[in-house]
Amino acid sequence: MQCRHQTAHTLFGQVPASLSPSWTMPHTSPTPRAVPWWVERAETLLASKDVRTLDLGALWELFERCSFVQENVEPDLLLIDVRERPELQALWKSFEARAHSVTEALDEAGEDVAQQLRTGDLAPALFRERWERLGFTEAAGRASTAADDWLEGLLRISRVTTGQNRPPFGQVNMASRAQRISDFLSITSPGQHDTIYDLGCGNGKFAITVAASCSAQVKGVEYGQTYVESARRNGERFALRNLEFIHSDVRDVDLSDGTAFYLFFPFWGEVAHAVARTLGDIARARDITVYASGPRHDYGEHFLEQVSQGALCLAPQRQDFADVMVLRSAAFS
């Protein structure tokens, strides 16, 4: 869909003096500009449900839709729209008020959950049940699920973040889907004696969700400073004592205390090769589980190399998670 604010331009040519009056073009009014693209969206958002009746996930969906309009309407072109169609000024003001009320309601709903986490009223098992029971069915016309909307609304984390410069062999930050996080928890069944590493954790959706959903120690490792700062702020907001974020090149981190490792295609090439080799070495010494999601070429192939060398063994592929490799220590399987 075209996102940029569009304008219609009318071109007027001059009639050559050599033409006789009978050939002169008749005077016509300029072609009216098309109705701005944002008008229909604003009207739809104004007609949406009362924010007081919406839960955290529904508020996040509404917040993202409002943000899309605000971020893609160019101020200079908005002035032109209002000058040509004065009635749009009232519509825009009403829309801005609506967006503000959505933001306030989202903040309040998120703070309520955060308070429950800080006080311990929302224990890990209850927190996990709360987001999992919302379901993983993708909404029509949206690449999201009710569980994802709830978690991302709580964390105020967008699905894709492109503002941070990527290091060599690094990927664009993409927040893990809720169904994948649930699958990881089901496969690993982490407890208080486990240490989980989220390698290339980005803004921390996976790490924070897992730390709030179980008693294991969770450590997110991320090279991008902006991501780490954002993740740490969220971790402090929820007062999760079993959560830590490490700002470092993953190759420089001691991973030897880990029992489970999560990777959502965070890097490729030499970095992926080095990490797979490190995890292979750990697997020879102790029982670990590696949950690696991503393409086989130049990513998965490095983990499969550790399988061929006898360090890891690969669990059977599952239809719902065809891009996921679940690997375990071969010596302990």
Rank of each mutant, 00 (worst) to 15 (best):
I282Q: 07
R4Y: 15
V73F: 03
A239D: 14
S182K: 15
T28G: 04
A239G: 10
E152W: 07
R232K: 07
S189K: 05
L77D: 11
T53V: 10
G235V: 01
A211P: 03
R159L: 07
Q179I: 10
F332E: 11
D320N: 14
T162V: 08
E244N: 09
E71P: 04
I187K: 06
A272P: 01
L91F: 14
Q306L: 00
A147W: 08
V82G: 08
E229S: 10
Y227T: 02
A285T: 08
A260L: 00
T103F: 15
R128K: 09
F238N: 04
D323R: 04
G235Q: 02
A285K: 09
A178E: 11
I187H: 02
P295T: 04
V228Y: 02
F238Q: 00
S67E: 09
G280F: 04
Y227A: 00
L314P: 04
L312R: 00
G153I: 01
S293T: 05
T24R: 15
R130F: 09
R156W: 12
A272K: 02
L62I: 06
T31K: 08
R128T: 10
S158P: 02
A311T: 01
D148E: 15
S29Y: 13
I246N: 03
G191W: 09
H100F: 14
T119W: 04
E40K: 10
R241A: 14
F261E: 03
L78P: 05
R83H: 15
S18N: 13
F206P: 00
T119N: 06
N72M: 10
S22R: 10
E229M: 11
N203H: 15
F303T: 01
D81V: 05
T259N: 13
Q115T: 07
R41A: 12
Q70L: 11
R318E: 15
S144K: 05
D149W: 13
L78C: 09
T137G: 04
R318N: 13
L117H: 05
R130D: 11
N234F: 11
P26F: 13
S48G: 07
Q319A: 14
L59S: 07
S256T: 07
G269F: 11
L126W: 12
R241F: 13
H273K: 05
V221I: 13
A274W: 11
N242E: 06
S189G: 05
L154C: 05
I282A: 06
G220I: 09
A231S: 06
R133H: 12
L88V: 09
D148G: 10
H273R: 09
I187G: 04
H247V: 02
T289R: 00
D121V: 01
H5A: 07
W150A: 01
D149C: 06
A143H: 10
F136S: 01
S182Q: 15
V39M: 06
M325E: 12
S18L: 14
R237Y: 11
R318P: 09
E244W: 04
E74V: 14
A114W: 13
A207Q: 03
Q115H: 14
L106P: 01
F238A: 00
S18R: 14
I246F: 11
T10R: 06
V15Q: 15
I187C: 06
K49Y: 12
A178F: 15
T161C: 07
S230V: 01
I282M: 12
R65N: 06
R133Y: 11
V102H: 07
A146W: 15
S67H: 05
F184R: 00
Y299F: 08
D298N: 15
A272F: 05
G224C: 11
R286C: 06
P266M: 03
H273D: 05
P168H: 14
H297S: 12
